[in-house]
């Protein structure tokens, strides 16, 4: 009896937390759209954050992008050979990377690196009263801290994604040349032939949404952190989990939407 009671309490608490996160995030998003068009625009801050985000994530996404392309080509090659479709290899690597793997993997890595960073940074500003200090000096901390970071994330992730796609395609080429000789021009030509507008644009466009999610979740968790340093740690870890999850959910929806808008 005792046990079941505490267990029900825990589950209740979890559910409560779950719904309060969803509710809080929605309100936070509404607040974003209410404030982000109101001057003053913090262009300098946005640029500063974009620089930082780029520097912070470039090494890890480069490595990941390269390996993804490499492994994808290595894995697909025997399969395609089995079906006698080896000539589709460049196209297949490109399509997979452009439509799905590039955007989603970059976003997930971005979430791991950036969402936690924003969560920790804003979380520690919250618990050490730095956000209150901004508030009393008549600066809107939401605008200065949250809006700038969310915009920076939203703008930088698509750039990173295009870069990752490019690196992965290079990785694919290198994997192919390891086992057979293929002219680089031939590789590029054949993948260009297989990629259409309807593959590239929606793939990259959805990363604007992913970037927004990463910024928003990290900022929300940090901005609303409580309970001292423990709360900062919690803000940082939960923001990774929550943002990754929301990214995957949105991916599902956006893929469906893309297929409906650009039927193949």
């Amino acid at each position: 009896m005792q046990l079941s009671k505490t267990r029900r309490g825990r589950i209740g608490e979890r559910l409560n937390e779950y719904f309060s996160t969803i509710g809080g995030l929605s309100l936070f998003t509404v607040e974003f759209f209410k404030t982000f068009l109101v001057p003053p625009y913090e262009f300098a801050e946005i640029k500063k954050h974009m620089d930082e985000l780029g520097v912070k994530t470039l090494p890890i996404v480069s490595v990941t992008g390269f390996i993804i392309g490499l492994v994808l080509a290595m894995q697909s090659q025997p399969v395609l050979i089995r079906f006698g479709a080896e000539s589709f290899l460049p196209g297949m690597v490109a399509l997979t990377v452009v439509r799905e793997l590039g955007p989603v993997l970059t976003a997930i890595i971005f979430a791991g690196r950036v969402s936690s960073g924003i969560g920790a940074e804003l979380g520690s500003m919250r618990v050490t009263e730095q956000i209150d200090a901004m508030e009393v000096s008549a600066v809107n901390p939401f605008k200065y801290l949250v809006v700038t970071r969310v915009i920076a994330c939203t703008l930088i992730l698509p750039v990173l994604t295009v870069y990752v796609i490019f690196i992965a395609i290079m990785g694919g080429y290198i994997a192919i040349t390891l086992s057979q000789s293929m002219n680089f021009n031939y590789y590029v030509n054949s993948l260009m032939l297989s990629i259409r507008f309807g593959d590239f644009v929606p793939g990259v466009a959805k990363t604007f949404v992913f970037g927004f999610i990463v910024g928003m979740v990290g900022a929300y968790k940090g901005y609303t952190a409580e309970n001292g340093t423990e709360g900062v740690g919690k803000a940082s870890t939960t923001s990774v989990v929550v943002s990754s999850l929301i990214i995957l959910l949105f991916d599902m929806v956006l893929v469906k939407l893309t297929l409906w808008l650009w039927p193949t």
Binding site: M125, T128, E129, Q130, D132, A133, V136, S137, A138
Partner: peptide, 14 residues
Amino acid sequence: KNIGFLFQSGALYD
């Protein structure tokens, strides 16, 4: 803008 506030903890922007 016409009020100054000194936080007990300082609250410097780190």
